[in-house]
Simulated scan of single mutants.
Amino acid sequence: MTKVLITGATGMLGQYALAAAKAEGYDIITFGRPQNDLNNIETIAPFIAQIKPSIVLHLAAQTDVDLCERDPALAARINVLATREVAKATTMVGGWLGYVSTSNVFGAKEQTVYNELDLPDPVNYYGRSKFWGEQMVIQYAPHNHLIVRAGWMIGGGASKDHKFVGKIIAQIRNGASQILAVDDKQGSITAAENLARFLLASAKRGRIGLFHFASKGTVTRFQIACEIAKSLGYSGVVRGVRSNIFPLSAPRATSEGIESIFLSDAAEDIYIGSWNEDLQKYISQF
């Protein structure tokens, strides 16, 4: 039976990947608390060497953008050095490595949309740490890796979604008369469930290289909030605001919009819809 190692299996994307791997009948091993911790870098390679997985989905990361800005050493340890060890060990056992990166590797050029040929130019330490994580994968797993850059991730459902979509739905259900959402920053959304399916399908076929994976079209958080409000019949006011009313440690790019010029039309049809289609599909799960 094919062994699949999933790091970050308790996270949003990890839960979907775990379900997809179970549906495929894989022998699943997880790496994460309480047994292991990416902070303990020296434990990573021995663990992978012991279990010898055929597929490694490296989904664990420090994704708190503002924490990474306040503690770049933490970002480097988790997102760069731990990724290096995962890549080295996966290559050593002859496995295939799927690594999830982020649209946050872009932003300084202030383009509206970035594709796979655009050079990364992150504006914060989170984006920089994920970019250097990509470099670790390229260097230490040169012939057996897939790097996938995702946009603003949506998923988790009613009980586990503590990100933007979940917070807006919670405000509506709690009877808020007004919802504030930023309208001067834009990006792309990525449905975590679709990405998990894409990763498992890519592992099965041995797909390698670098791909962007996000719903079609760029969108602001204000537009997302309006779409949610319309879908749920919200009678209050959704108001667009400037991002500077929410003080944050880390700078944000004006746009983190991404698109793929490498994924085939067939792959897009299976996994990727427009941003409002993918958002509506997710909202219906609540």
Rank of each mutant, 00 (worst) to 15 (best):
A76T: 04
Y125N: 00
P46N: 03
S159P: 03
M92C: 01
P72G: 11
I258T: 10
K230G: 10
K88H: 09
A87H: 14
K216A: 05
G236R: 12
E42S: 06
K185R: 12
I270R: 06
F246V: 09
G95M: 00
K163Q: 15
R242A: 09
A150S: 11
V165Y: 04
D27A: 12
D161Y: 06
N144F: 13
S255I: 01
E24T: 07
L117Q: 04
A250M: 08
N39Q: 04
I78D: 05
G257E: 02
A158Q: 02
A192T: 13
Q111T: 01
V165H: 01
E85D: 06
K88T: 13
A192W: 08
T254I: 13
I147Y: 02
T63Y: 10
Y16M: 08
L97N: 04
K185Q: 15
Q223L: 02
T91C: 01
G107P: 12
E268F: 12
S177N: 10
V182D: 03
Q171E: 09
A89D: 03
N115C: 15
K109N: 09
G257D: 07
L67S: 03
R239Q: 03
A201L: 05
G236S: 13
T218V: 15
Q111R: 03
D118M: 01
I168Y: 05
T30F: 11
N244W: 13
E256V: 10
H143F: 09
L38Q: 10
V65H: 12
K52T: 05
A61Y: 14
T90N: 01
I261G: 07
A19G: 10
W132F: 15
S284I: 05
V238D: 00
I283A: 15
P120T: 04
D64E: 03
K167T: 05
I228S: 10
N194W: 07
K204R: 03
G94H: 08
Q139R: 14
Y16L: 02
E110F: 04
P247M: 03
A19N: 13
Q135R: 04
E277Y: 14
A23T: 10
T90G: 03
V86S: 05
I147D: 05
D269F: 07
G98R: 09
E277I: 13
I189V: 10
G236I: 11
Q15I: 15
Q285T: 15
V165G: 04
G257F: 11
M12N: 10
A23Q: 14
K204E: 11
N124A: 12
T90W: 11
S235K: 13
H162D: 02
A21G: 13
G94S: 14
A9E: 06
Y126C: 05
I172C: 00
G32H: 02
E277M: 14
T190Q: 11
S231H: 14
G157D: 00
I44E: 07
G209N: 15
Y99G: 14
E24N: 01
F213D: 01
K130H: 06
K109Q: 01
